[in-house]
Amino acid sequence: MKRILVGIKRVVDFNVRIRVKPDGSGVITDGVKMSINPFDEIALEEALRIKERGAAEEVIVATVGPAECQQQLRTALAMGADRALHVQADGVLEPLVVARALLKLIEREQPLLVILGKQAIDDDNGQTGQVLAALWNRPQATYASKIELSADTARVTREVDVGLETLEVDLPAVITTDLRLNEPRYVKLPDIMKAKKKPLDTLPLGTLGVEQRQQLKLVRFEPPPQRHKGIRVKDAAELVDALKKKGLL
C-alpha cells in the first residue's frame, strides 16, 4: 500500500505570548493554548491532497511525546488522516531521538513519502527531517513549496535564500514543508466526531528500542533583551531630519 507518514508535533499556539518562568527553568506552558505545529498542518494537508489525487492510499500521522499529544493526533485525524501512531515519551526529546523513533515507524509502515515540517515553532530547531533522512539514508527535500510526484521520484521546489530551487529525488524520501506549500483546510464538526472512531495506536518509546538520550543540557532560559521604545515624528520631513541626525542618510 502506498502510504505517507506525516510528523505531528504539539506546540504552544503561534498566537500565544511566550513568557519565561522567573526561575529560568523554562517557558510558561500551564493553561496555554496548544496546537499542531503550523508546518505540520501544512505537511498533513499536502499528504491529504496527494491521497485525494490518487497518488497515495493511506495517510498516517505520528507524534512522539506525552499523553496530551493525542489531542493533536485527534485533530489530525479529523482533518482527514486515516490513522495515528503515538510514540509515548515524557521529558526532553531531542531531534535525534525523535528521528530514531520515526525511523522505527518507517520500518514498520514502509511509507512512500515522509512529510515533516521545516521547523517546530517552539524549539525552532529545524533539524528532525534532515536527521531522519540521514539515519534512513534516503533523500531529503527541505523547505518545499511545491511537490510533484511520479511513480518513483518526486520533483520538489524549495524556498531557498536565493529564490526557488528544484530537486528531483528518488522515493522514498523525506520532505519538509515551507509556508507556501498549501493552505491547510479547516476541520469540520462532523469530522471531529468521525475522528473519534479512527485508529490511534500508542507505543511506548522504549518498546521501539529507542533510548531517550539527552545530549544537550538545558542550562538556562531567559527573556530576550527588550528594544527601548523610540520617538514619534509627525511627517516625512521630520523623519528625514531624524535619520540625518543619526547619520543614517
Partner: peptide
C-alpha cells in the same frame, strides 16, 4: 540560541564527551 521565535533565549551545554 533563540527559541520560540526569539521570545526566549536558551543556553545549552553538551553533556558528556563528543
Amino acid at each position: 540560541r533563540p527559541i520560540y521565535a526569539g521570545n526566549a533565549l536558551l543556553t545549552v551545554e553538551r553533556s558528556g564527551e563528543g
